[in-house]
Write a protein that binds this DNA or RNA. Sequence first.
DNA 1: TAACAATAGTGTATAAATCACACTAATATT
DNA 2: AATATTAGTGTGATTTATACACTATTGTTA
Lengths: 235, 235
Amino acid sequence: MTKYSKQSRFLVAVDCIVFGFDGETLKLLLIKRSFNPEKDKWSLMGGFVQASESLDQAANRILKQLTGLEGVYLEQMYSFGETNRDPIERTISVSYFALVDIHKYEKQISTDFHAEWVPLKRIPKLIFDHQDMVELAKKSIRYKAALHPILFELLPSRFTLPQLQTLYESVFNTSIDKRNFSKRVLATGLLIKLNDKDKAGSKRGAYYYQLNMQKYYANFQAFINIIPNPDSLQN
Amino acid sequence: MTKYSKQSRFLVAVDCIVFGFDGETLKLLLIKRSFNPEKDKWSLMGGFVQASESLDQAANRILKQLTGLEGVYLEQMYSFGETNRDPIERTISVSYFALVDIHKYEKQISTDFHAEWVPLKRIPKLIFDHQDMVELAKKSIRYKAALHPILFELLPSRFTLPQLQTLYESVFNTSIDKRNFSKRVLATGLLIKLNDKDKAGSKRGAYYYQLNMQKYYANFQAFINIIPNPDSLQN
DNA sequence: TAACAATAGTGTATAAATCACACTAATATT
DNA sequence: AATATTAGTGTGATTTATACACTATTGTTA
């Protein structure tokens, strides 16, 4: 059968907004572009989709190539298709956001690749419409995290309640009463309390918890109420 | 400056999942394809993105061309990019869902175009991965409608509470106590009660309501609780 | 080695939201 | 005039959310 001969064909890119959390601050992984146009400007991780791969495969490949990251939480977000968003040639970009445990990758990223963790509050000017992508990604994770337990993807496999609370407070840019916070998270049944403590953050030490992976996967689609009235917290 | 010479370029399509509600049943607008491949098979509204238009513009154009629909609620949903999803040539499809007032368009659609409203429960086999798109669209509107007042887009500008309730009951495939339902919807402050009644649906007649457009637009992003525990209603 | 400083951990009473539930009202039809 | 059909309304019980403050632990320091 013949091809669709009269139609235009376009470059299709994938761009990844990669979030990390170092225990205090939410960060994005950015790279200095190594090729034209906009060489040496800050950019999201991106690359063109190849003929042989699906969009998801492209996103995973690009993330792996540019940062070494593999097997991380990656979710398609939105497709950007303004005709002039790339000045060289029309490119449609399918954006993904990723949530990674920053500690696993911190060293290898900055040495092997020209990628850097930048605090979300101090994102430099980015190329093309990457700024818009970042804004949308911030909204998207806040929205999703208000309903689903995705933020655990940003933490190491063992974490403390104070760490978890700090993470929620950063994402939602608010402060939460710790008694109510712990009641709510424990009520989800997602956490398993361990016997040892993290002594790094305080003299007394805080108990480690880990995810109950069974329940985590089973309840991922269910709505969960860690942040009440999240819409009143927009900013 | 030169183009990105070594990269592959792809066809990019837009496919629209168009929902309508006739007062009793949720329906999708489908068309019989008028061209190959898969001529005469059932399909979603789709078409290729042109060089001169953005994705949103393409979606609006295609909807207009194939159905005459214009100015309807249209929201980008997800991009489908499996390499072999179109057997003729690789095509990346950006899907949109639309919510329309079925009465406004019912006649003009079936006469001017080869489009047809089909009950959601009786969707025929569709071409390519359009079945997947429909499944995702059903999930998407249910998810969104659990949190935001989008379902009003499916109703005429004047509607009764019984109509609204039937709509929610169809979307969530459940039944709701009408006392609690009316309390909840009226508590949103989104509805204005009118002085006349719809006498078509019953002898007594039910009061018409209309949307308070101010509040509707202002509160669109806010979370709203018309359906409690929507996750317990999945199916 | 006792006092101090710093963070972790816990409970209760009040307010608000949600839920379950049944009767009367209006009117077209017979 | 009786009947059938759908619209409209209120309350009490339960659950959930909120506000709020003190004790526990332990490394550091005087």
